[in-house]
Amino acid sequence: MKTIPFARTLLAAGLGLALCGAAQAQEKLTYMTNWYAQAEHGGFYQAVATGIYRKHGLDVTIRMGGPQVNILQLMAAGQADCIMGSSDMQMMIARAGGLPVVTVAAIFQKDPQVLISHENVRSFEEMKDKTILIAPSAQRGYWLWLKGKYGFKDEQTRPYTFNIQPFVADGNTVQQGYLTSEPFAIQKAGVKANAHLFADQGWTSYATTVSCMEETIRSRPKAVESFVKATMEGWKAYLADPAPGNALIRKDNPNMTDEQLAYSVGKLKEMGIIGSGDARTAGIGVINEARAKQNYAFLVDNKLIEPSKLKVEDAFKLDWVKAAKVLP
């Protein structure tokens, strides 16, 4: 009978334990988006597809949100570790309302919110006599800014139902949209239109946040820190070659087309949604503290939050994204 040297047995056993330990080192983390899978979520999917999260010791699951999904409630109930806030302002409002949520990064330096007009309307100033289709949620957000800056009136508004047909059918209407989404659908419908980006006119909101419960940040700091770093690497990789992330996006959302994905990625790049502003020198996802305070002041001035209910510094933890410094 052939005997196996004792040293070799120990080596094999040690290797097995090491491999087992490596597998156990992958800490699970669930991140929930705020809509169906799309290019606007590409960096998160890219980090899954290319193994970036695993390289950082994480086993990450991306869960889709949607129009009837309250991701804040689901996170509070423990069904997600961190979520994609639509903006830093939304997360501050939630915090002031009693949910202990903390924002640790914001992928979009520019909020992609737009108003879309027919081609004969060339500026916000030319919309004063138009019917403007906006969602009820906008009434407690950017609509207040638009009214203050351009003199729009509440009487102009009608509900936006996330359907472009009322806009397509009526040349006297303007509708809300996302730079990377609705303009493409309107173009495909054969209507010539202009997209007017709020961010280029002084709207300072950040968008597409990484926001987590305060308890998650307190009890799992290494996991959240690793998630922040890996996510920014994922976004850099996605903008360089979106194919791996797009494959997973289409798997989660079979209705997503290659044409829509290409359009959206192109707009993210063209308009500097991710890589402009402070991200150029401080890295993807960075939040400027002075700008965050400006956004907080907007919320207070418009009575969207009570200052006694929230200190701006409690709504953010920014050292991890600063340390990551993943340049675009």
Rank of each mutant, 00 (worst) to 15 (best):
K293Y: 07
T216D: 03
R280H: 04
L133V: 04
S123T: 08
P221T: 10
D301M: 04
P244G: 10
Y160E: 12
I62T: 02
N172C: 04
F167T: 09
M32Y: 00
M127P: 03
Y53K: 03
K222E: 15
A315F: 02
M89I: 08
V312P: 02
A240L: 07
I71A: 03
T157E: 06
F6Y: 12
V224S: 01
S308N: 09
K149F: 08
G266M: 13
A189T: 09
F298H: 11
E215T: 14
A169V: 08
F316C: 12
A12R: 08
N295A: 05
L10F: 11
A7G: 00
I134C: 05
V101F: 06
T216V: 09
M89Q: 06
T161R: 10
Q260A: 12
V174S: 06
M89F: 04
A23E: 13
T33Y: 07
Q38F: 14
G245T: 05
A77S: 10
G66I: 13
K267F: 03
D170A: 11
K130G: 03
T3H: 11
E270Q: 12
S205Y: 05
K236I: 14
A282D: 13
L133Q: 07
P328Y: 14
Q139I: 09
E270H: 02
A39M: 10
M256G: 01
L304N: 01
P183I: 13
E125R: 14
D81T: 00
P67W: 14
A279Y: 01
I305M: 04
A247Y: 01
K147M: 15
E215V: 13
L318A: 05
P242M: 07
A290E: 15
K128R: 13
R122P: 00
K322I: 13
R250V: 14
E182R: 00
T257H: 05
T173S: 12
A138Q: 14
R218T: 04
L29G: 00
F108S: 00
T157H: 01
A223L: 11
G148T: 08
V121R: 07
E289K: 15
I273L: 08
E126D: 10
R140F: 02
E215H: 14
L10N: 04
L144K: 14
F198S: 03
K188V: 02
V168A: 12
A292W: 07
K153G: 02
G42E: 01
A243G: 08
P307L: 10
W203I: 10
K149R: 12
Y45M: 09
S205D: 04
M84V: 02
Q68F: 13
P112S: 10
I107V: 15
S123V: 13
K325I: 12
Q26H: 08
M271C: 07
M232G: 03
L268P: 01
G285P: 00
L144T: 04
M213Q: 08
P244W: 10
I134R: 00
I287T: 01
E119V: 14
E40L: 14
S211C: 06
Q46H: 09
R291T: 13
M91W: 00
T180K: 06
G202I: 09
A13S: 08
K293E: 15
F298S: 05
G148P: 01
L197D: 06
L268R: 01
T157M: 10
Q90F: 06
F162C: 00
T3I: 15
E215Q: 15
F6D: 09
I116G: 06
D111C: 12
L74H: 01
